[in-house]
């Protein structure tokens, strides 16, 4: 928990490198984060990593805040901020540049074709993420039912998901999940 300069430097280096390797989003970088934080650098135990990941999953905000938690665990608030900025910095600069090009050539033929090629890839990846997350979370039939209820409510209605989260938290609390 000591925010030494060396620790902050290490956090920054790790996540700057990881930023551009996270092809397909933050969750794609989880295995590499785990390898570094647990196996290589010994920042935390396997169990601690799993707990931090669970907290980041259920906390509000982008999934990438698991990086904030890792940094926080290693070096307090400064660690959380440094790790997050390092993880997002390079990819954000790239996104800024690409977004500009994307918009400028809105009606260019090559851009329309790349777009037509990328959209289905994106849709397929999101569906794959849904499957992977469901497989990880649905440890029993009650958990599976919770997933399906949330999916149906989210698709067919505009009911706020927090109501279903409250139900899920209660089901977990009384030991059904």
């Amino acid at each position: 928990m000591k925010a030494g300069t060396g620790t902050l430097d290490a956090l920054m280096t790790q996540f700057l490198l990881l930023s551009l390797l996270a092809v397909g989003g933050g969750n794609a970088a989880i295995p590499e984060m785990h390898r570094q934080a647990v196996d290589v650098l010994g920042w935390m135990t396997d169990r601690q990593f799993a707990d931090l990941f669970a907290i980041a999953q259920v906390a509000p905000g982008p999934n990438i805040i698991v990086v904030t938690l890792i940094g926080f665990h290693v070096a307090g608030v400064a660690g959380g901020v440094v790790a997050t900025l390092a993880m997002c910095g390079p990819s954000c600069l790239l996104a800024f540049g690409m977004g500009h090009i994307w918009e400028r050539f809105r009606y260019a033929r090559w851009r329309v074709l790349i777009q037509a090629g990328l959209v289905p890839v994106s849709v397929g990846l999101i569906a794959a993420s849904a499957l992977i997350l469901a497989q990880a979370a649905d440890v029993n039939w009650v958990a599976f039912a919770l997933t399906m209820v949330m999916a149906a409510v989210g698709y067919f209605t505009r009911v706020h998901p927090l109501w279903i989260f409250a139900l899920a938290a209660f089901a977990g609390y009384v030991g059904l999940v």
């Binding site: 399906m148 209820v149 977990g172 059904l176």
Partner: peptide, 15 residues
């Protein structure tokens, strides 16, 4: 554990 199961459902819906 309960919250994680519900969270997966959200991604199912958006996909």
């Amino acid at each position: 554990s309960g919250l994680a199961a519900a969270a997966a459902g959200l991604i199912v819906a958006v996909s």
